[in-house]
Design a protein around this nucleic acid. Structure first.
Lengths: 231, 231
DNA sequence: GATTAACGAGAGCACTGCTCTCGCAAACAG
DNA sequence: CTGTTTGCGAGAGCAGTGCTCTCGTTAATC
């Protein structure tokens, strides 16, 4: 009984995956603006209305692609991090950051999909937020598990209370083991990495940076120092 | 003779300005994807084909809007910087950074236009690059003119040669007075500011940051320390 | 074997960017 | 003042879009 049902459901799943695959191909070729449901249907030998059995709207297709992109990126980073000895915080940091950049440069259009201008109805369903947190969680874990012998960082200037502007509960879940007074630097590092990639991929570095790959390594290194991840 | 010609040219200029104004309004209401030449023409009591006398294509209109946005932002930052005593590098830094954020939060759609996903034919004509450099020039001037008593920063670890990956000539023009070994930190600060705004405006901070304005001030402060701009 | 549900096809609606032709009127040259 | 050029708006039209609705067909369920 369930086998029959499964054959149906599985066929549907296959079709959905095929549609997303064609959509990804078209986006890679003609950017997100060039994605048209009619062209997807044409490419699949279907009539356009048939696609609406699977995606009620164009934005729904895009949302599915966004979710996939987040998870694909997250998976890549998790794997890169897993390959390095757990105690080697600096190595994990470098590997993860590089994995992010590698994914981004290999999939620039998917990167734009998730880190570029949001689509009009920019409702971020919790599903999306979770997927987006995957990368952040990896970076958070690295920082949290690094037994930073950081004595209370000496006579630093008065730390402003980050709970004024941060969701400390949410952050504690993403990067357990990190002291709240380090949240700001952590978020800044996260922002720097993706700000870099956004600038690189969106052409903002034209005229100032001639080898983004080399620069990225130095940036990642500086961030590691700032985060006290360097051995 | 020229007066007559000017009346023509001036009328044309006025029309172009009116078109851009309506386009800006529509973008603010329905985001860039919702901008349609036909709606602009409708709003102006014209027929759609008439608009093509002024902008040969939709992208051309968008390019004009992008240029305006860059210059508007640049002007805002230049003014904010000019209001602070030249010798007060830290004050100038804070004022300029805040001006950037104020402009961005007041004009989120224009911000997305210039710092979001590039439009398909993402040819960045030199005109655009120049306008884009206006903001960078202000920040560069602040750093360059700050007589940082920075002794060779002591026994720092070996500086990698930034000329491997940076366009040192272009950078020297943007931030004269800044030592090449400080270029990296300068670019990182620039990236951090816009990465922050991109994350804030594009919803990436949802769930982690609850008051971006407060956080921004702290970020700007940290950057000032890193850039040795703090008195 | 009868019923229900999923599906693809096809026509159609309202909309888009863009092209082309046609008259009108302002600017110019003699 | 006359004739010509040039810029302009109107209108029709083309190809394309997202999306809706109806209608047979086919596959799963009872």
């Amino acid at each position: 009984m369930s086998t029959a049902t499964n054959s149906r459901a599985r066929a549907r799943e296959t079709h959905i995956e095929a549609i997303k695959g064609v959509a990804r191909k078209l986006i890679a070729e003609k950017s997100v603006a060039g994605l048209s449901l009619r062209e997807v249907s044409r490419e699949m030998g279907l009539v356009s209305s048939a696609l609406y059995r699977y995606f009620a709207t164009r934005d729904e297709l895009l949302t599915a692609l966004i979710l996939d992109a987040y998870n694909d990126l997250g998976r890549s980073v998790e794997r890169a991090d897993a390959k390095v000895a757990r105690a080697d915080a600096y190595g994990r940091w470098k590997a993860s950051a590089r994995a992010i950049r590698r994914w981004a440069t290999k999939n620039p259009h998917e990167y734009a999909l998730i880190y570029g201008t949001p689509i009009p109805g920019y409702v971020a369903p919790t599903e999306t937020i979770d997927a987006a947190a995957r990368v952040a969680r990896v970076l958070g874990a690295i920082m949290g598990e690094s037994r930073q012998t950081s004595a209370p960082s000496g006579p630093r200037r008065k730390k402003s209370d980050v709970s004024r502007y941060l969701e400390v509960d949410g952050l504690a879940a993403i990067m357990p083991g990190v002291a709240p007074e380090d949240y700001l630097k952590a978020l800044m590092a996260w922002t720097e990495i993706f700000g870099f990639l956004t600038f690189e991929l969106f052409g903002q570095y034209v005229g100032t940076v001639k080898n983004a790959s080399l620069m990225f390594d130095d940036v990642v290194n500086e961030l590691a120092i700032s985060l006290k991840l360097k051995p």
